[in-house]
């Protein structure tokens, strides 16, 4: 049983990764958009009076790209299946729908790794940012952990989107707020105090902190633990909500409505 789930996860993740890599929209979201946003951040920082670390901005913009890829992937996951007429087949398959959906959301966040690579290379080539990381091994660990936890956050979103036909509207809405509330480019200390507790519940906050610690010196372990813990929490909540929302969608006969 476990072997079947692991195989489904592996094959599904690979399939969706290759499939999404061929989409021009995903190339835009995961490479061009972060490069544009990092360029804006670099130019704004150059004219600024504060001593902003450009490497931090590059990493933040890269993480913004991971979030965008995850968000639009998760928002689109259910919608695509609906449009292609495969949602009912997948829900009706013997494997739990969670096992089918998880590889897709993980693949979308994995695709976001292009974002980090793109913003770092772009920053290095055009803005001469020194790519010196204090703890490269911690960084090498922090990146996949962040990607997985974002993929699990995407799963949580996708599970709620099964009920709504216009889920992509929420995707459009949630991009900037999460960039802001997780302190990817703007320090949380500048935002109203009530944003900070919200940021604690969002794994990109801890992922960014872990990546920062790894890049600039310090210990990333506590942040990595929080990131992973939140990811597992999202998975547990998703398992419950997905089952309930799937049942509701069957009851209301809204599963395949486009």
């Amino acid at each position: 049983m476990k072997g079947v789930s692991a195989r489904l996860l592996w094959i599904g993740w690979r399939f969706h990764l290759v499939n999404l890599s061929r989409s021009a929209f995903y190339v835009l979201v995961s490479i061009l958009q972060p490069v544009i946003f990092s360029s804006i951040a670099f130019f704004v920082a150059r004219t600024g009076s504060e001593d902003a670390a450009l490497l931090r901005l590059a990493l933040g913009a890269g993480l913004m790209g991971i979030w965008s890829a995850t968000l639009f992937g998760s928002g689109g996951a259910i919608q695509w299946q609906r449009r292609q007429g495969t949602l009912e087949l997948l829900v009706g398959a013997p494997r739990p729908f969670l096992a089918t959906l998880l590889p897709l959301t993980l693949a979308t966040s994995t695709l976001g790794l292009y974002s980090i690579a793109a913003t770092l290379v772009w920053g290095r080539l055009l803005f001469k940012i020194p790519l010196a990381f204090a703890h490269p091994w911690q960084l090498a660990l922090a990146l996949p952990v962040t990607v997985v936890s974002l993929g699990l956050l995407g799963l949580l979103l996708a599970s709620t989107f099964i009920l709504y036909r216009q889920a992509n509207a929420f995707s459009n809405l949630l991009e900037y707020p999460i960039w802001l509330a997780t302190g990817l480019l703007v320090p949380l200390s500048l935002l109203p105090g009530w944003v900070t507790p919200i940021s604690w519940a969002l794994s990109p906050t801890w992922g960014m902190r872990a990546i920062e610690e790894a890049a600039f010196g310090g210990s990333a372990w506590a942040e990595l633990g929080a990131c992973l813990g939140l990811g597992l929490g999202y998975l547990a909540v998703s398992a419950v909500t997905l089952r309930n929302f799937e049942r509701l969608a069957r009851d209301r006969a809204t599963l395949s409505l486009t």
Binding site: I40, A41, V44, A45, T47, G48, S49, E50, A52, N172, L173, E175, Y176, P177, W179, L180, L185, V186, P187, L190, L191
Partner: peptide, 21 residues
């Protein structure tokens, strides 16, 4: 409406964070 609102907030706060304009 929502997305433009947060776009305005995001870039204004980015300006504040960098001490730009």
């Amino acid at each position: 409406l929502g997305s433009p609102l947060f776009q305005i907030l995001f870039f204004t706060y980015l300006g504040r964070a960098t001490g730009s304009r």
